[in-house]
Write a protein that binds this DNA or RNA. Structure first.
Length: 592
RNA sequence: GGUUCCGUAGCUCAGUUGGAUAGAGCAACAGCCUUCUAAGCUGUGGGUCACGCGUUCGAGCCGCGUCGGAAUCACCA
């Protein structure tokens, strides 16, 4: 039985026996805080009306009753209105034995729900940067967490492969590229295409200032710059499926996809479905027709279609241009509809930056007004910007942190640090590289995932590369140490798989209690889409074990039963750490 | 101006449905390698939880207001 159920049932029964049945009132039970004696605590303040006694007397009365009627509970103490209950060691041992035999500990049974999570969704005109890294890591981790909560998860990526941005790169490549390819330059495809996007911008800016010195206003200059008009012409040709443009588009996008694949692989993220906007951008028009018929939308004189959301505190929003072409919102209405219909989704989660909060607010509202109740099951997992110590990232000013460079730097630093510390001296070159990769990426991933998604976060490259403190490598390190102990136990032929009856130290009880909490942590992280809850837990567990590890010997313990219990405990801690890190998409090395 | 979000130690961040004396890490200082991995452990100092009012036995958390910051309010995606 789950421990929370056991406690709440026990306490509820006792309270009812003393004061009669409660009327839907929830008892407040929580883990006892470290500075007090006890395992679980009942807050008695809400019960005072029924007991008609002081908080202290009420708590004492309940405590006496519980201890007298519950063999598993050893003792109680009362501080103000808090009743602290202490359990017998045998109770914790039994609970620990349950955890050890559960091979899928922490994971919830199948829920029968299907959830789609869309993340990454890159543009194909430039490489991924730090903002995308946050997006990808969040999306992937939340997908893992939802799986652990028993849901069927579909990871989706909607690639924005068409539009004026890619045409800019294409045009600049055509004009100035001299036939360069990833193969001929040795450049990663996305970086090569990105290079021409920058190239376009350079010429564009030059033309604008030229036109402005010739007397045009900035706005005019922006519109009439020849290179810009040429890019627009290219987009028109693309939409008309001009064979030459189409071939160029396919070739350059292909380069970008090859480049993205490398980055995704390095980050350890993947997808079940990849959608391309070139195939979905015409969707949604029928929904607009439907909305017009229902009178939810209206048409203006120029034939453009709008919805008036002023009554909802928002403003008017365009849904279809005057020439009948669709806009972003049209497409998103269409794709949402298709996805719910095609996949029988229960929930849809979009991992998209907070600059689109308004968009998703409107999207949900419109679907609701069209009568689609599944609109309530759309979640925008919004995340804040990643800022640098010097200020904001601006791609045009060259202050972006490139994802590939960052990954390389992290791995390289991990390698340098471990060489310096002599950590990997007896590894082969290949092993050492693998470990450095896990550690470098672990540092990066943990650094990003431990922050609440909705907050703007500061990425300090120097701090992220510091492997001390509340970091991924610290947790990985704890895991590696435990594995090392277990290897040695195995070499010594110690069998610690059998149940043991040793008494536990307070630190050991503490560890078991923390392990007991793991399923709740996964559930909470799943409900809030919050990898940060998992990371906080993993750190707490690792820290707890580290302190214990320093103060008590495991292999050298002479009492066989105690040693077995400690080995079992170590093994279980390692497994839970590994599982938790897995949910964050972080690999844990066997040694480091 | 409207909408949404943020404001917690010098810095970066936690803080579960409202509960006990608000927690970590970094930085600073003082200890700890003859003993299972020192990428570690132990200790010290550091706070008007932006501010005010309210609800409550009880507020960092809930409500209202003020101040400060961010995003957004495109026939871009």
């Amino acid at each position: 039985m789950k421990i929370e159920h056991f406690i709440s049932e026990t306490v509820t029964r006792s309270v009812e026996a003393l004061y009669g049945k409660a009327e839907g009132e929830q008892l407040q039970i929580q883990k006892t805080r470290k500075e007090f004696e006890g395992d679980y605590t009942l807050v008695v303040f809400p019960l005072l009306r029924r007991s008609r006694k002081s908080p202290e007397n009420t708590a004492a009365e309940i405590g006496e009753y519980i201890v007298a009627h519950t063999p598993e509970i050893k003792s109680f103490n009362v501080i103000k209105g808090f009743l602290n209950l202490t359990f017998e060691h045998s109770f914790w041992r039994a609970r620990f034995a349950e955890i050890c035999t559960d091979t899928r500990y922490g994971e919830a049974p199948a829920s029968g729900r299907t959830v789609m999570i869309e993340y990454s969704s890159p543009n194909t005109n430039k490489p991924l940067h730090l903002g995308h890294v946050r997006n990808n890591l969040l999306g992937y981790s939340v997908a893992r967490i939802l799986q652990a909560n028993g849901h069927k998860v579909i990871k989706a990526n909607l690639v924005n492969d068409r539009g004026i941005h890619i045409c800019k790169s294409m045009l600049a490549w055509k004009l100035f590229g001299n036939g360069e390819t990833p193969a001929s330059t040795g450049m990663k495809g996305d970086h090569l295409v990105g290079k021409y996007y920058v190239e376009f911008d350079k010429h564009y800016k030059a033309q604008i200032s030229e036109l402005m010195t010739a007397g045009k206003s900035e706005e005019e200059a922006k519109k009439s710059a020849p290179i810009f008009q040429e890019a627009q012409e290219m987009l028109r040709k693309w939409e008309a499926q001009d064979p030459d443009i189409y071939a160029l588009w396919q070739m350059m996008n292909g380069w970008v996809y090859d480049g993205f694949d490398v980055t995704y692989k390095a980050l350890g993220v993947d997808f079940d479905k990849i959608y391309y906007e070139s195939q979905t951008y015409l969707l949604g028009k029928s929904l607009v027709e439907e909305g017009l018929k229902k009178g939810v939308f209206f048409r203006k004189e120029d034939h453009s279609v709008w919805i008036d959301l002023e009554a909802d505190g928002l403003d008017q929003k365009l849904l279809l241009r005057g020439d009948g072409t669709s806009v972003y919102m049209t497409q998103d209405l269409g794709t949402a509809f298709r996805r719910f219909e095609d996949n029988k989704l229960d929930d849809m989660i979009y991992v998209v930056g907070n600059e689109q909060n308004y968009h998703f607010q409107v999207l949900k509202l419109i679907l609701k007004k069209l009568g689609y109740n599944w609109s309530d099951h759309i979640t925008h997992l919004s995340y804040g910007m990643v800022e640098l110590p010097e200020g904001k990232m601006k791609s045009r000013e060259g202050t972006v942190v490139d994802a590939d460079e960052l990954i390389e730097k992290m791995v390289q630093t991990a390698r340098e640090m471990s060489d310096e510390l002599g950590k990997l001296n007896d590894c082969t070159e290949e092993e050492a590289n693998n470990i450095a990769t896990m550690v470098g990426l672990g540092a990066l991933k943990y650094f990003i995932l431990k922050v609440d998604p909705k907050k703007t976060m500061l990425f300090d490259p120097r701090e992220s590369i510091d492997f001390n403190g509340n970091t991924g490598p610290f947790i990985q390190y704890t895991h590696a140490r435990i594995r090392s102990i277990l290897r040695k136990a195995e070499e010594a032929g110690i069998d610690y798989s059998l149940p043991v009856e040793a008494d536990c130290l307070p630190e050991e009880i503490e560890l078991i209690k923390t392990l007991t909490d793991y399923p709740n942590v996964i559930a909470a992280a799943g409900a809030d889409f919050a990898p940060s809850i998992i990371s906080a837990y993993a750190y707490e567990l690792a820290k707890l074990f580290n302190g214990y590890y320093h103060d008590h010997s495991i292999l050298k313990e002479e009492n066989t039963a105690v040693r077995q219990m400690r080995l079992q405990l170590a093994q279980e801690v390692a497994q839970v750490i590994q599982h938790a890190m897995n949910l964050l998409g972080i690999n844990v090395p066997e040694r480091m």
